[in-house]
Design a protein around this nucleic acid. Structure first.
Lengths: 185, 185
DNA sequence: CGATTTTCGTTAGGAGCCTAACCGTTAGCC
DNA sequence: GGCTAACGGTTAGGCTCCTAACGAAAATCG
């Protein structure tokens, strides 16, 4: 469970005050940014607390959900390679190795080598994992519902619209700055 | 830099579909929750990337900001105890020991024992830290501004209002569930 | 066909945070 | 005043994630 930021978010007057010293500081942008960070963190720790109560980490949960979804959607077997899993869950391949290690140890997934390409592995859910998810998910969904309870339907739609603008923008900024980093500064 | 969630957020139709299987799933709540998590993560990694470019971690940055703020606000010396720092930055005291260790090693803070209570330490900023912050902060503020650039002033206000509702609610839920955990389930 | 390059999964090592247990110091209480 | 409890900071050990470097298998190409 990560921490995040200061206990008390700064009052808006303080931001206006600080803006006098730093002309780069945009008070309304700063306020929105800090609130976004805090709200995201609160949501994250709430979710993580629920997951750890079931003895599963956020990373492992992501793998299980992805495999389950892949199983349901395409009517496929639900087997995926570690590289696919790492890409979809936004984790490095090295991390995925560790996640699959513990999931396999706990009996939630099975590893088999691909018959056609002997470099590849196929990771699939066990029946035990399906049972575990069916027992876990209702509480997970209830948590989301209770967290968003104070928002009306229209407020939720508004929130999603605003957040989408930030997400799109951030993805562009992050990608371009990552690129400028890769190309030597 | 943490990862977060799946690469592609689920489409709303998929949530509606999943709701048929899980009656606890509230599609609009789930959508808002996932977008919040993603937006918060994007903002977080953008900030963290900027900080690591200056060879400082998010945790250490929080300590510096808090000490600087404490110095400016009250006209005080800016010296705080590790326990105060831990409380305000939402980190355990053990973690704060490590943060102060590295900050002291890098010449950003100094530790002195309290004269009245020999259990306590006083952590204060060095001139070097002030110089460092003055060099770092403009870029930090510019980052926030560019992240929130696609939102108008009124949209930012709306966003803050909506996020505040979530923050308040989450703080209550997290506190009560932490309490129920402390009292033995 | 053999040599190079690419791709896959893994290992090794590090950073940041956590909990639990620890000493030294102070405060409360007969 | 001495014994116990509470408090402040630290240490020890664990978890999750990361980057970097590695061998094995496949693809590419002269």
């Amino acid at each position: 469970m990560p921490h995040l930021l200061l206990k008390d978010l700064p009052r808006y007057e303080c931001l206006l005050e600080a803006a006098k010293e730093f002309p780069e500081l945009d008070p309304s942008a700063c306020e929105a940014f800090l609130h976004l960070l805090r709200a995201g963190d609160e949501a994250f720790v709430a979710m993580e607390r629920n997951l750890t109560a079931h003895n599963i980490s956020h990373g492992r949960f992501g793998v299980l959900m992805l495999l389950a979804q892949n199983c349901d959607d395409c009517g496929g077997t639900g087997a995926m390679t570690p590289a696919e899993l790492a890409d979809q869950t936004r984790v490095t391949r090295a991390t995925m190795t560790g996640l699959v290690d513990t999931l396999e140890r706990d009996g939630f997934v099975s590893r088999t080598v691909d018959a056609n390409d002997r470099r590849m592995m196929r990771v699939g859910l066990t029946p035990q994992a399906h049972a575990f998810l069916e027992q876990l998910l209702p509480g997970h969904f209830q948590l989301m519902a209770s967290l968003m309870a104070p928002l009306s339907q229209t407020e939720r739609k508004t929130l999603v619209t605003l957040l989408n603008k930030v997400i799109q923008n951030a993805a562009t900024l992050n990608a371009s700055s990552a690129q400028s980093f890769a190309s030597g500064r």
